[in-house]
Nucleic acid binder design. Sequence first.
DNA 1: ACCTGAACACCGTTCAAGT
DNA 2: ACCTGAACACCGTTCAAGT
Lengths: 232, 232
Amino acid sequence: MVETTDATRRRTRLTRDAVLRRAVAIADEHGVEALTMRRLAEELGVEAMSLYHHVRGKDGILDGALELVLDEMLDAVSRLEPPDLADPRDWQPAVRARILAARTVMLRHRWTPQVMEARNAMTLSAARHVDGIVALMRAGGFSWDLVHHGLHALGSRVHGFTQELGEPEGGDAEAEAVLAQIAPHIPHLVAMFSEVAHDEPGSTLGWCDDQTEFEFGLDLVLDGLERLARQG
Amino acid sequence: MVETTDATRRRTRLTRDAVLRRAVAIADEHGVEALTMRRLAEELGVEAMSLYHHVRGKDGILDGALELVLDEMLDAVSRLEPPDLADPRDWQPAVRARILAARTVMLRHRWTPQVMEARNAMTLSAARHVDGIVALMRAGGFSWDLVHHGLHALGSRVHGFTQELGEPEGGDAEAEAVLAQIAPHIPHLVAMFSEVAHDEPGSTLGWCDDQTEFEFGLDLVLDGLERLARQG
DNA sequence: ACCTGAACACCGTTCAAGT
DNA sequence: ACCTGAACACCGTTCAAGT
């Protein structure tokens, strides 16, 4: 207990794992842009240059932090109870459950999409997560070709997120003014926004990627794949 | 002609548009990470601080460069010949054509996904592009609710790109070694890769988002939406 | 082997000064 | 009004030096 405070941290020897865990914590709380070598070192009660003995620079830290999240993701998915797969169609709810489980982890580390896009990290955990989905698709009667296309169609959705459109954020006065100015040029969008109350409480991610919409898009893809698997 | 060379550029007064065009050119050729205030200024034959008179800092340059690309995108989409829309189903090929047109522009500026994710820029051109798609969906008999869900399901695809999974890149010796090491743990993925020759010549984007796969995913979503529009 | 201080080469940006 | 030089506060990283 006393061991974990900043002041006493210096006593315990620095380890790669401790460095990466701190990195994840900083990114979780303050965003990746706040994750600098100097700050990370300071929070660990050490000089910035000491980090280089445990990690290969800033890139190593980003990769390592991402790896930790992906490990957590695989772990969460692995805890799901194994599906029956009696019927060929059972692949679909099973894949759905895995992806939604992955998403819950992602939501605890919202910086991961940014980092995953920047560095296309291929970690063991990520590969095993995808491998499990491939296995389920095969059990569902997918051809290898359909499995391949299916993974591409899912894209980053397998990791629980989607690249969303930038929509005007509510509350910001300046953004409101900009919207009012361009409104005459986008009548259909304005009509849509006035019809659907978009500021639902279920919104979970900053860029308007809320749970409902994520599941809608996910199911659209899964349903389409199921249809193709049966017909081909 | 002589006017446009670097040496003589100093004579013509610097304009916001000239700054932004140079910024796009640098990002196109060398990536956004190469787009620094000092380099941009140097290429324009000016000091870095002069840029601040035409643009509000680095953020203003990124926003402005993105705006230029989105203008180009709207322009390309606008040049498509207007669809018939005699049959309710005609919305689908029309939307498809617009999205693929947007994609051709995106492919000329491959840094846009990165930048669009980082700063959720809502420009007039982007909004008008989406507005046109909304109009087509409505002509196709979509409820406002389905339009809304549909936009979310498409996500960044409306702008011609998708967040893809990081797949092992061929050629890299180190990456090959890593793959060989984890292969025993991902038997289904390995089987898939051995079945589908993935290194097709049609690959257009770095992160394995090639034209064929983009269109597969796009059509899966569009077909699913069409089905929902008819039944509801 | 592990940690450190000083330094280097870069950033974006501020500010007072030029014309 | 537009442009500039010097400076500031930050980066990630190298390197020689400590223990």
